[in-house]
């Protein structure tokens, strides 16, 4: 149990081990640990950022959706209004057309009647002439005179 030269040997071994550890063991291990910690920290920060971005994007999308809905409702409203307007206009126009057609029909009928009346008149005139001719013929036949006239009158 005495102190012997073993002490010197162990002291040298101790020194060598510590130096080796200091050169080849500690720096790479500690460096890797620290680099990994940094990496994890960065990753967490990035994920935080992404989460915030996502939240923002969702909010924005919801806003845009709301806006689009409002726009669509607006457009539909306008279209409805326009449709009513067109229907009204068309109704008015149809009404006018109808009246116009009816008026035309009336005037045509009027013209036809006028024409027929004229024709009749002409026929009456002709008949009158024919009647007169017959009467003239009856100058010879006195007796027959009066009944021809009567006949004419009846024919009128």
């Amino acid at each position: 149990m005495n102190l012997t030269a073993t002490l010197i040997g162990e002291l040298i071994a101790f020194t060598v081990f510590v130096l080796f550890c200091m050169k080849y063991v500690w720096p790479p291990l500690n460096g890797a640990i620290e680099a990994r910690q940094k990496k994890i920290e960065d990753g967490l920060a990035a994920s935080d950022r992404a989460e915030k971005d996502l939240e923002l994007a969702q909010k924005k999308a919801a806003e845009q959706l709301k806006e689009a809905k409002a726009q669509a409702a607006d457009i539909i409203e306008q279209a409805k209004k326009r449709a009513t307007l067109i229907v009204d206009e068309e109704t008015v126009r149809g009404q006018q057309e109808r009246e116009k057609i009816i008026a035309q029909g009336h005037s045509e009928i009027e013209a036809e009647r006028n024409r027929v009346t004229e024709e009749l008149r002409k026929k009456v005139a002709t008949l009158a002439v024919v009647g007169a001719e017959k009467i003239l013929e009856r100058e010879i036949n006195q007796a027959a005179h009066s009944d021809i006239v009567e006949k004419l009158v009846a024919e009128l």
Binding site: T6, L7, I8, G9, E10, L11, A13, F14, T15
Partner: peptide, 9 residues
């Protein structure tokens, strides 16, 4: 000797 070497170091 061992522990003394460590302590002396």
């Amino acid at each position: 000797n061992m522990t003394a070497a460590l302590a002396i170091g």
